[in-house]
Nucleic acid binder design. Sequence first.
DNA 1: TATTTTATTGATTGACGAGTCAATCAAAAT
DNA 2: ATTTTGATTGACTCGTCAATCAATAAAATA
Lengths: 191, 191
Amino acid sequence: MPKIGMEPKRRSALVNAAIDEIGEAGSLDVTVAQIARRAGMSAGLAHHYFGGKEQMLLAAMRHILAVFSGKVRDGLHEAKGPHGRLEAVICANFEDHVFDRRKTSAWLSFYAMAQSNTKAAHLMQIYQRRLRSNLVHDLRALTTRPEEVALIIGALIDGVYLRAALSGEGPHSMATETVLNTLDALLGDME
Amino acid sequence: MPKIGMEPKRRSALVNAAIDEIGEAGSLDVTVAQIARRAGMSAGLAHHYFGGKEQMLLAAMRHILAVFSGKVRDGLHEAKGPHGRLEAVICANFEDHVFDRRKTSAWLSFYAMAQSNTKAAHLMQIYQRRLRSNLVHDLRALTTRPEEVALIIGALIDGVYLRAALSGEGPHSMATETVLNTLDALLGDME
DNA sequence: TATTTTATTGATTGACGAGTCAATCAAAAT
DNA sequence: ATTTTGATTGACTCGTCAATCAATAAAATA
């Protein structure tokens, strides 16, 4: 069985297993053994490839972040005009592959982790900055207070995620509509 | 030294110590011994009064919830008109004694806890339902879609909390203004 | 005064889990 | 054919921590 070039496959399997395990348990307190078993290997191998639990979890965070970034890129690519681009950025947050039970649940756990782990906090900062930057860029053409609106929309998205994670809800269009309606209300009121 | 009637004092001290310890650590993974020491007693005594760590943490959640409820009550008492009452409810969330570094940080940890602990989840439901109920009640007079606006404001408050917890920011008026401005924008746009 | 109740501690137990390590096996390289 | 390298496991270590349990002391009660 021992073939060559297993590392990338095993790392990927572990990252996915970690997200699923954490998402289902609703907690970071899942054992490396549980994650490894779900990924079809021994706990020792998980340590061999990642060096430790922390680095495995950070890799899982980075993965979610990378998938999300890809969705944003794709969405922006076929969007026209400032408002269309804003919609694309917001919708990317609620794509089916992103706004999914286990992912949002895992994401909330990662948020908690970011409070006590500086590396996790740094990753979260990257996510927030990127989102903010994307929003502000297109808001400039639509409002005199782009920073304030971006702050609100960002916080609102986080809040929707948090509630989705707690209620165990999966993807549903209402979330997207809710945020988009708020955006329009903000643009209409504070133009 | 052993006086009578220590139970309520010790329970209260433990609850406060738990909030501070969790808030400072940014994690629920603080030991009972740490909490007990901060509260000025041995770990054994903490177990004696609370029976276990879980019940102690739940008591801490209930305490935060109770303080918050009190603020809402006080605020509503001296508020006039639907809009004034809405402002009061929202401002209660950002009172100095509520929207404080350690409290928001602990609150985020409790949110995470609610994903894996049904009792904690139940407490969170109570908080969300109360807030929603308060908002909807006064929104009826101001908009045709009170439920939707209440949902948005609720999620926005959660998001602001989450970001405050992560950034380690303490109380500042911008948070309140942000939510209030959004409320007005929503009322103006979707009347 | 004797007894019961409450307060309190420190030591101990027992479980659990992250990380390490030596040993094994198979493919690749020489 | 021999050696080297990567893959893989299971057992073992070590630390941590929640929970338990006498044992003690001081009030309150009888």
